[in-house]
Each structure stands twice: as C-alpha cells, then as structure tokens.
Write a protein that binds this DNA or RNA. Structure first.
Lengths: 158, 158
DNA sequence: TATAATACCTAGTATTTTAGTAGGTTATAA
DNA sequence: TTATAACCTACTAAAATACTAGGTATTATA
C-alpha cells in the first residue's frame, strides 16, 4: 500500500462526490475546477475508481458521477488501493537467496506493517469524513471563524 | 506523510541495524548486499537518517553505523519522516480562494487523516519489530518451516 | 607511517511515476 | 439535431526515485 498525492486527489474527489450526494451527479469538470486538477487526469483516476466499482458515471447532459455505493460502505483504503499501485516487494524465491533468513524476515515484517496500515485505513469510511465535513461547514456558517481559531476536526475510528 | 518504497528501504535498513546491535557497528556495504540496494543510494538515505540523529556513523576500518538511540526510542514514523519528503498540501491562502469553504475543508480533513496515520506509525517502535524478528528467527531455527506454512507475525501496537 | 577500510560528500544520469495535453468516440437529455 | 457529458488512447512534461561515478576525510592496524 502506497500513500502519495495521487491517493489524496482520489480521496478528496470522492469526498466531493459524497458531500454532493443530494445532487443527482457531479461533473468531473466541477471537481477539476474545485481541486485545480486537469480534467483529463481526473478522468484517468475515475476510470480506475469506476473499475473498482466505487463510482458510477452517467453520460450526456446533466450527467456526471455519483458514488456507486453508500458513503458508509466506501473506505479510504479502497479508494487509495484503486488509484495507487501497490508497493512492490522484491520477491526472494525460497530460502536459497536469503542469508540466514534475515532478508526474508524484514521483508515479511514490512508486509505485516503495511497490512496494519491497510487495516487502519480500511476502518475510516467516506461517510464519516463527509459528516465531519458537513458539521464543520455548519459550524463555520453559524460561528464565523476568528483569527487564529484552529478548529480540531477529529476523525472517529471504527 | 508519504509512504513509498523509499521509506521501506530505510525501515528495513534500520531494522538490520537494530538486529545487529550486539555488533559494534554494521557497514553500509553489508546492508547494501543484504538488501540489494546500491551502496551510494544507501549512503544518501543514511545521510538523512544521520541528520535526524537516528544513526551514528563511525569512520575507518571496523567502522560503520549503529543506532544513535535505543531501538525502543525510534519509531517507524521518525524513520519515514527522515527520508520521505512530507506530502505537500496546496495552500489556499485564506477564504478568498475557497468556494464556500469546501476546498479548504476537504483539505483540512486530509491533514487530519495524515495526522492519524502519523500517530499510528509513531506508536510502532523499531525495538518491537526487532524482537518480533528475533522471535520468528528462533522459531524458524527450532521448528523448520513446512511447505505452505505461513507463520503470521503480529506487530503489537502501543 | 603507510595502507586500507570506511564514512561522507557532490554532481551527475537513468528510470519510473505523476501529472497534464491533445484529440478523439460514444451516449443521452433537451 | 445539438450540446454536454462520460469514456478512451496516445503522447509529452515534470518530478521523484534509484543509481553511477568520482571524489575527500577519518581512523584502525600492519
């Protein structure tokens, strides 16, 4: 599991979709403008999200994208896995390449580590992020931001 | 916080150092051979680790590297932060750039998300990984691996 | 004191990934 | 019929990753 800006683009775009779930669909053009990413690049990211059945596209005027499932059924890990190629582990075929098993081992430990990370991100759902977002937006509307007022938005796990 | 193969190289190399803490030092040449990374590239990674005071180098024959602190005081997050440049968040200066605050917000949420990730990796220490590693090595020595025997090495948190 | 081993340093190049561009086609609402 | 959108493919640009080459500085030891 990698974690780069590419994954961030995808998560933010998906969040955009989740926040606008009340609308029938959101066009990539809108998202591209909001996020200042090139439209065509976004299209390429969404092709991957579509293949993983995370979004659904509708053509023609009034068309656009919407989430293929409920925001509460889409985890951050799923989004990142869809666009970020998985890390490659150089495979040491059997024991013969491994001096005293040491290489194989640290290897294995790293796999475990990324598994843990995957678990972690698998338990954060788009729905939770969305509600946090709406809440913060509401808060900002009612109590306008003061200078130096850094509101902490906690992301609840599980 | 990014997470790429570069960070993996660094973590594995540091684990190598931790496992060999009984020796006075380990040469980069050894690590390079174990991990099949170019020596000079490793040197560059270790320059960063040195700057963050995670390792200590000793010159001359019999020299090499050792951990600058106890393995129980070095977290995975520290290692990754040392070598992987932090993700850049496009800064939207104040409210004027943000349409309805939406952009700022997803932005902020992403910062929170990476904070969570950072917290998570900050609570896994090299010492724990090292002990797991030694344990698994011992296990392999006493009960030789059978075909299809995938031993699960758990990484304890906290 | 000479030598070899090692860290340590700098400036490159090659490769891969990320990001963007261009120019399409298909589907569909109006 | 037209405009709007998804959808697709091939290419280029920019950045990051990985490596190469060729040094200097330090130090144990023969």
């Amino acid at each position: 599991m990698r974690l780069t800006t590419k994954g961030r683009y995808a998560v933010t775009a998906m969040l955009d979709l989740a926040i606008n779930h009340n609308k029938d669909s959101v066009t990539l053009r809108n998202i591209a403008e909001n996020q200042k990413i090139s439209l065509s690049y976004l299209e390429q990211l969404f092709a991957k999200l579509r293949k993983q059945d995370l979004v659904k596209g509708m053509r023609g005027p009034g068309g656009g994208y919407r989430l293929a499932r409920s925001a509460d059924e889409i985890s951050i890990a799923q989004i990142i896995r869809a666009v970020d190629e998985p890390m490659e582990f150089t495979d040491c075929h059997g024991l013969e390449n491994c001096k005293g098993g040491e290489r194989c081992l640290s290897h294995h430990l790293w796999v475990q580590l990324t598994d843990q990370l995957d678990d972690f991100l698998s338990n954060i759902y788009l729905g939770a992020l969305m509600r946090e977002s709406e809440q913060a937006l509401e808060q900002r509307r009612t109590e306008p931001r003061q200078t130096g007022d850094r509101q902490k938005v906690t992301v609840p796990m599980h």
